[in-house]
Design a protein around this nucleic acid. Structure first.
Length: 897
RNA sequence: GCCCGCUUAGCUCAGUUGGUAGAGCACACGCUUCACACGCGUGGGGUCAGAAGUUCGAGUCUUCUAGCGGGCACCA
């Protein structure tokens, strides 16, 4: 027998994945049952530029555990992989590459540049997909999709055209967030607010025309005053009532601007007078429309001042212009004060450049209309079901209640080009193809809109487009709606909500039943992992160090909770994997004449030893619990249950209890039967563990004698043997044996007490001691009697004497057990009476404290009256048991007196 | 400003419907016991952030306070 003592994860990891993939185990077609229930997940498509981080590994683990679990449970299972073209990120990545060659994208031109991006994708993109193989992700690679695939492009155009025809999409002027560095419009979800701790608030004075008065306005952006076209005050503000309708002389540019009244203005803030710059601030833009104010554009797309800002300012950067405006105001004596002021500024979510709000002609989508159906669904039916519901259902609902128009167009080259064409007069034709547009326009002289769509526009279609929409494919019929979406919380708005919108619009059904929001993994100091900080833990390094299976156990346990990453947890699961390895090794070393058998435990109940009935019960109870936990996404609990079943019940107790039988040198039907039983329990345990630990379980499962195709779930008839397709144990209620568990517990307690005595009395591990057991209850005596061999072996006892009443020599260490049992270890010459007295006194004190607490509670008439009768009875039982133990201890102490 | 979450053993975290506080790691002691030292056995360690309330009974429910972390908001 030549099995290494230590499990080497890398070997198993290298061995099985490609085999599984090539055999088609990941594809739903492997399931031959036409009536099989369906389980489907589409992966959140990682960016084509991305590489695996812990967040991905976490999401993938959750998805894979469930997919493998459902597959083993007989479901027709699809986990669909793919990638996102990631417009801006990818374009920037390739531009950076070009820069090294001294080129810009404009040097290449649009067509060549796009080709270059595709080339880049071929060579470097999709790193993450290779890494997913390492994770053991059981995705169906035959259905891999990319958001820029021809078919998905067709879906995008369909979405666009239909929405345009329905009046949901429009082309027009609006106030948008513009990134001066990336040179594109952004949606409000792609920008971040950032606190400006050292911000300043500038108080500027504007002279009133034909008067000595001045009106003071407060602003954080003085440079925009060059584009002011009004000052607004609250209509109820007494201070300015007489100035309503007056004209102000805008300093520097000498423009005459009105004072207007608007409810928006908060009289409490600043001076109660607000400068209005309709071309460069979202609120002012809205106010400008309300009061029909001119829009003077003083800042351009590069965040530099325009000619409109005046000759002195033209070409200046916005911050230089700010300095200059302040200088001027100071010289004019119009700068009232500058105060420190904390506020937030908006930055580009990608490059952190400060956003410039600009008026621009773009394509927009009226999200409010699309959002109505998802909003109703979540309000009325709580669908999709968020896990955890708090706080995400509310977050999602709140957002849907307050939808703004979505800026769709991006001034980029990489992405889905907007399917809109213009004729020479500038009329727009939205169509699925250029041909269609020509027909609509009645001319060939058309020019396509140069812009591309927001990346999230195609992502919004992911669950339906990947399954074939707009065609009515078999996949779409079979796998939609999907069962589950697993993702991080930061894209609930960007993505989750929008998939619900498109799913409901085009399919009339929710995109997924459940939405599982994973926790966030921080570094050990509680800091968010990020590339710029360089504090990220690389999943691949963790895989290398501890193995994929161990890492997956940690990730599955994390589930929805925010966690600080620490290697010690992985290490402990690495040890667990090793434990599984060695337990199997032990079973294999003693497997001659035996095999995994469906009828290994099929003998009359009274012919089966207690420990066999017990492990069978524990196994089935564990299986039931794990199924229940998985049904409610309680991964941590499932992992804990399996861990303790395998380590504590199976290894620490069952193997030890059955060891003598199994390692017997002489072959016998009894030995072979015992060997088959342990193999059979082990085989089931491996299946239960498989969704979490795919590699080690497959590696070991295949090595077990008697394991073959017959163990596969009936749906996979004809497939080669693999644990992946073995049926997941459901746990049989009938095999749960409460009595066996209670009786076994008595044995375990007994052995533990003996071990405790041995340890406290410093008895050498090799030294065997005699043991006296007493129990008034006949049945309990029988239970002990039936297990004397095991007790003797495990507790290292030389001889066991079971009596009705304890009759031990004075020089004995004693202990009391539940159920009125007692034990004594005679230690003539070894025992230190003082020490033993101390030990017993300590134990007595413990019991006494507990008894007092309970008696106090029982002495409370209100408790006895109001608490449920069974609760009261339970306490009485406990008190009785404690009292029994105490009196036994008392007698023991007297023996030493 | 509004909303939400978190605070449990030295560390990382569990604790379902209110009814004797748990795990892993760490720590102490003892073990080359014929699967495993990535192991075995034994043991110590928590007034569950603080306060008040509801209740026979609160880690668990309510309110407030503090600290930390999110999300949202047009306050110039």
């Amino acid at each position: 027998m030549d099995i290494p003592k230590t499990y080497d994860p890398k070997q198993a990891e290298a061995r099985h994945y490609s085999r599984w993939e090539e055999a088609g185990f990941f594809a739903p077609e492997i399931n031959r049952d036409p009536h099989a229930p369906v389980y489907s997940i589409v992966i959140p498509p990682p960016n084509v530029t991305g590489s695996l981080h812990m967040g991905h590994a976490l999401q993938h683990t959750i998805m894979d555990v469930l997919t493998r679990y459902k597959r083993m449970s007989g479901y027709r299972t699809l986990w669909l992989p793919g990638m996102d073209h990631a417009g801006i990120s990818t374009q920037i990545m390739v531009e950076r590459q070009l820069k090294k060659e001294g080129l810009t994208r404009h040097d290449l031109g649009r067509e060549k540049f796009t080709e270059r991006v595709w080339q880049w994708k071929q060579e470097y993109g999709g790193q993450i997909l290779k890494q997913m193989r390492r994770e053991g992700a059981s995705v169906d690679w035959s259905r891999e999709r990319f958001t820029m695939d021809e078919h998905l492009t067709r879906a995008v155009r369909e979405f666009f055209v239909r929405s345009y025809e329905d009046g949901l999409i429009y082309h027009g002027e609006g106030m948008i967030s513009w990134c001066p560095k990336d040179q594109t419009a952004l949606s409000d979800l792609e920008v971040d607010k950032e606190e400006q701790k050292d911000g300043k608030l500038y108080y500027l004075q504007y002279p009133v025309k034909g008067s000595d008065r001045r009106v003071t306005v407060a602003t954080t952006r003085p440079e925009t005053m060059l584009g002011d076209t009004a000052v607004a005050v609250n209509p109820n503000d007494e201070r300015y009532r007489d100035l309503l309708g007056a004209t102000l002389l805008l300093p520097i540019v000498s423009r005459e601007i009105p004072i207007v009244a608007d409810e928006f203005v908060d009289p409490e803030f600043g001076t109660g007078a607000v400068k209005v710059t309709p071309a460069h601030d979202p609120n002012d833009y809205a106010m400008g429309i309300r009061h029909n104010l001119p829009q003077v554009r003083v800042i351009d797309q590069h965040a530099r001042m325009t000619a409109e800002a005046g000759a002195e300012f033209e070409g200046l950067d916005r911050y230089q212009a700010r300095e200059k405006v302040i200088e001027k105001f100071e010289t004019f004596g119009l700068l009232e004060k500058i105060v420190d002021y904390e506020f937030s500024i908006t930055k580009c979510g990608r490059c952190r450049t400060v956003i410039e709000p600009l008026i621009s002609t773009q394509w927009f989508l009226k999200q409010a209309e699309l959002g109505r159906a998802p909003l109703e669904l979540v309000r009325e039916k709580h669908e999709p079901r968020f896990v955890p519901r708090v706080p995400y259902e509310k977050v999602y609902t709140d957002w849907l209640e307050n939808l703004h128009d979505w800026t769709l167009s991006r001034q980029l080259w990489w992405g889905h080009r907007i399917p809109a064409w213009y004729d020479e007069e500038g009329n727009v034709y939205v169509a699925r193809t250029e041909e269609e547009a020509r027909v609509k326009a009645g001319t060939d002289k058309l020019e396509q809109d140069p812009d591309v769509l927001d990346t999230w526009f195609s992502s919004a279609l992911w669950p339906i487009s990947t399954l074939g929409w707009p065609d009515e494919t078999e996949d779409l019929k079979t796998f939609y709606p999907t069962s589950l979406l697993v993702t991080a919380r930061d894209i609930i708005f960007l993505w989750v909500s929008r998939m619900m919108m498109t799913g409901l619009k085009f399919m009339g059904e929710r995109a997924f039943d459940d939405v599982f929001i994973t926790g966030t993994i921080f570094d050990k100091h509680g800091q968010r992992m990020s590339k710029t900080k360089g504090n990220g833990v690389d999943p691949l390094e963790v895989f290398d160090k501890y193995g994929v299976d161990a890492t997956r156990l940690v990730l599955a346990s994390i589930g929805t909770t925010d966690t600080r990453w620490n290697d010690t947890q992985v290490e402990s699961y690495r040890n667990f994997a090793n434990k599984i390895w060695n337990a199997t090794r032990f079973c294999l070393m003693n497997s001659e004449g035996a095999s995994v058998k469906s009828d290994a435990f099929a003998v009359e109940r009274d012919k089966l030893a207690l420990h066999d009935r017990w492990i069978l019960s524990r196994l089935n109870r564990t299986a039931r619990e794990v199924n229940e936990f998985l049904a409610k996404y309680a991964f941590h609990e499932a992992v804990q249950t399996l861990y303790h079943f395998f380590w504590d019940d199976f290894c620490d107790w069952y193997i030890e209890l059955t060891k003598a039988e199994i390692t017997a040198e002489a072959a016998s039907p009894e030995r072979d039967a015992a060997r088959s039983r342990i193999l059979t329990v082990l085989e089931q345990a491996l299946r239960l563990l498989h969704p979490f630990m795919p590699y080690i379980t497959e590696e070991l499962w295949l090595s077990l004698p008697g394991v073959d195709e017959k163990l596969l779930h009936p749906a996979y008839e004809g497939a080669h043997a693999t644990i992946m397709l073995a049926s997941y144990p459901q746990g049989e209620e009938a095999l749960i044996d409460v009595r066996a568990e209670d009786e076994m517990q008595a044995i375990i307690d007994l052995i533990s007490r003996v071990r405790n005595i041995r340890s406290e009395m410093n008895i050498k591990p090799g030294e065997r001691v005699p043991l006296l057991i007493s129990a008034a209850d006949e049945n309990l005596r029988a239970v002990f009697a039936a297990s004397t061999d095991q007790i003797a072996r495990i507790a290292r006892v030389s001889e066991i004497n079971i009596t009705e009443k304890l009759d031990a020599p004075r020089a004995s260490a004693r202990a009391v057990l539940g159920g009125g049992a007692e034990l004594a270890v005679p230690l003539e010459g070894l025992i230190d009476f003082a020490q033993e007295r101390e030990r017993l006194t300590k134990e007595q004190a413990k019991l006494k404290a507990e008894a007092e607490k309970l008696e106090k509670q029982l002495g409370n008439p209100q408790f006895v009256e109001r608490a449920p009768a069974e609760k009261v009875e339970e306490l009485r039982q406990r008190v009785a048991d404690i009292n029994q133990r105490m009196s036994a201890l008392e007698q023991n102490l007297e023996a030493f007196a």
